[in-house]
């Protein structure tokens, strides 16, 4: 998969990578996962200012998967660059930095910092809204960015939201599993939904969106094995992102051949 900002390109080959939040900030998991088998490495979500871990329950099991709620702890972009930029330069695959998008002004500053870091090939923006107007505002710095940008939306986002991200200059659209909730201790507890129960939803959304999208589509959610990867590619995904499969089925990276797509 090739993504381009018009000024810089990133080639992701093979067309799979980890989901942001699955493999840390750089090579922390390299003794368990052969990072060289990925097409790209996506960092843990990073914000402009430091974020602390949540004080709420972090993991809820349910049939077919689990909810994960960490609060997306990270020391802030400046500290992450200081701690990890040398490791990024030594990574065997392109590095995609995942940014948490809160404020367009902060996003502009983060993009400027990353453009000068030679080890960064692309940026992925985690969008937590489905409001097209808010998406346009949040992504306003994208058109002036040199780096190719993947705009990652929840799979529940409608076509207006996808169009807004597309029109804002995203080099690719990412589809992420929607958030979920369970009833716990007399209240809702929410988190990122992870697990094979999501796969049919992600496959259906891939099929619906890929047909109408004129940009690369990156899909994550529910992938258990090589057959799931093949299904998504056949359904129109240009690349996929793996999360729990890297933790409980590390052999997946050896079992799929891109030529099978």
């Amino acid at each position: 998969m090739l993504i381009s900002s018009g000024k810089r390109e990133a080639i992701i080959d093979p067309a799979w990578m980890n989901t942001a939040g699955a493999l840390g900030f750089s090579d922390e998991t390299s003794s368990n996962v052969d990072l060289g088998r990925l097409g790209a490495f996506v960092t843990h979500p990073i914000s402009y200012a430091p974020r602390r871990t949540t004080r709420e329950t972090r993991l809820h099991d349910y049939p077919g998967g689990f909810l994960l709620h960490t609060g997306l702890p990270n020391p802030g972009l400046t500290a992450v660059l200081r701690q990890h930029h040398r490791r990024w330069r030594r990574m065997p695959v392109p590095v995609i930095v995942h940014l948490i998008v809160d404020d367009p002004g902060e996003l502009r500053l983060m993009l400027l910092q990353l453009e000068t870091e030679e080890s960064v090939s692309a940026v992925e923006l985690g969008l937590d809204t489905e409001d097209p107007d808010l998406i346009r505002r949040q992504l306003s710095p994208v058109t002036s960015s040199e780096l190719p940008i993947i705009a990652r939306l929840n799979a529940s986002a409608g076509w207006p939201a996808i169009e807004a991200a597309n029109a804002a200059g995203a080099a690719a659209i990412g589809l992420a599993p929607p958030r979920g909730a369970v009833w716990d201790l007399e209240r809702h507890s929410s988190g990122r939904a992870i697990g094979p129960g999501l796969f049919p939803i992600m496959l259906e959304r891939t099929s619906a969106i890929a047909a109408a999208l004129d940009k690369p589509l990156v899909v994550s959610g529910g992938i258990r094995n090589a057959a799931d990867v093949g299904s998504l590619i056949h359904s129109g995904a240009d690349a996929v992102q793996l999360d729990f499969a890297l933790w409980t089925n590390p052999g997946i990276l050896e079992s799929y051949s891109p030529q099978d797509a």
Binding site: G21, A22, L23, G24, E28, T29, S31, N32, V33, H44, R52, T53, R58, L59, F66, L68, T70, L72, P73, N74, P75, F244, L246, W247
Partner: peptide, 27 residues
Amino acid sequence: VGPTPCGMGGCQACALEGQGARRLLCV
């Protein structure tokens, strides 16, 4: 003792904060 869903230092779900540092249970 807390959740370690990845068991390899990747997901940050087991992160603890104290004394100005973030530590991972699994690392």
